[in-house]
């Protein structure tokens, strides 16, 4: 009994002593005194571009931090719905953003900040001489696709449908970066990924363009998540992504500006 009372007292004391971290004077102009960290849940295909924007953000706001969680957009949507923990969510498709928005977990409305298209990824020098989506149907080839559950996977199947091609992949990766790995290691002959992933892979992979009429238009929406820990830093990060500076970084990584 005594112990319980002591514990209660300790809790009261601890709560009472909690420093007012991140307290902001409501009257202060925005952009000043940004502090604390915000967590950004972003599609795997945004890994390189968002890391660069995150660095720009931290350089401009030395006492603020951006923590990233890169994964498949669908997995991130489940995480946000089930356990939260995100201040910002950037998805590789509208469907997953809608899923989160339908649960009223979005503050305001989502904004499209970039677009992407698909390419066929092959080993450098294209040793198998692949040219078109139809070539991927060759049963001799080992083709990896993203799983149909994740955006890159359903986009890839959409493009294959557009081309009237049915293929049997040897593996279905859990996110788009998982398609790149086996191809760059030489274990798979080809895969379908975003153009930006091929750019990020540099000399380790080669991209083959998919004609405009067969390709898909992958739109990337971004939004502030409700009940995050640091809405102010989260909002400022979104602003930076949508700014001219942020859009330039997206373009540098091969995205098509929104």
């Amino acid at each position: 009994m005594k112990l319980k009372a002591f514990g209660l007292l300790a809790v009261v004391l601890l709560v009472g002593c909690r420093p007012e971290v991140g307290y902001q004077d409501p009257g202060s102009p925005a952009g000043q005194q940004l502090s604390g960290s915000a967590t950004v849940f972003a599609a795997a295909s945004l890994t390189e571009s968002f890391q660069q924007i995150g660095k720009l953000f931290e350089d401009a706001n030395p006492s603020a931090q951006i923590v990233f969680n890169f994964s498949s957009s669908s997995g991130l949507a489940t995480q946000i719905s089930e356990q939260g923990g995100a201040d910002v969510y950037a998805s590789a498709d509208r469907a997953n953003m809608d899923k989160v928005a339908d649960r009223s977990l979005i503050d305001g409305s989502a904004q499209v900040f970039a677009r992407n298209r698909l390419e066929i990824v092959v080993a450098p020098g294209n040793p198998k001489g692949i040219k078109t989506l139809a070539d991927l149907a060759n049963p001799e080839l080992k083709v990896v696709l993203a799983a149909p559950q994740v955006p890159a996977g359903h986009y890839a199947r959409e493009a294959l449908d557009n081309a009237g091609v049915t293929i049997r992949p040897v593996s279905e990766a859990v996110d788009v970066k998982g398609v790149l790995g086996p191809v760059t290691l030489g274990e798979a002959d080809a895969g379908i990924v975003y153009a930006t992933d091929i750019k990020a892979a540099g000399s380790r992979a080669e991209g083959l363009a998919i004609p405009e009429d067969l390709n898909v238009n992958a739109e990337y929406p971004i939004a502030l998540v409700k009940n995050g820990r640091n809405a102010q830093v989260g909002r400022a990060f979104i602003d930076l992504v949508l700014s001219e500076e942020g859009q330039q970084v997206m373009a540098d990584h091969g995205f098509i500006p929104a």
Binding site: S72, S74, G75, A77, T78, E82, V144, A147, Q149, V150, P169, V170, S171, E172, A173, V174, P182
Partner: peptide, 24 residues
């Protein structure tokens, strides 16, 4: 090592992980 393909290499733990994407 073996990748993820239903019927060939997708064991239950892999199926659970994939199902987490959209079918909790």
């Amino acid at each position: 090592f073996a990748g993820n393909l239903p019927g060939r290499t997708q064991t239950i733990p892999l199926a659970v992980y994939l199902a987490l994407e959209n079918r909790l």
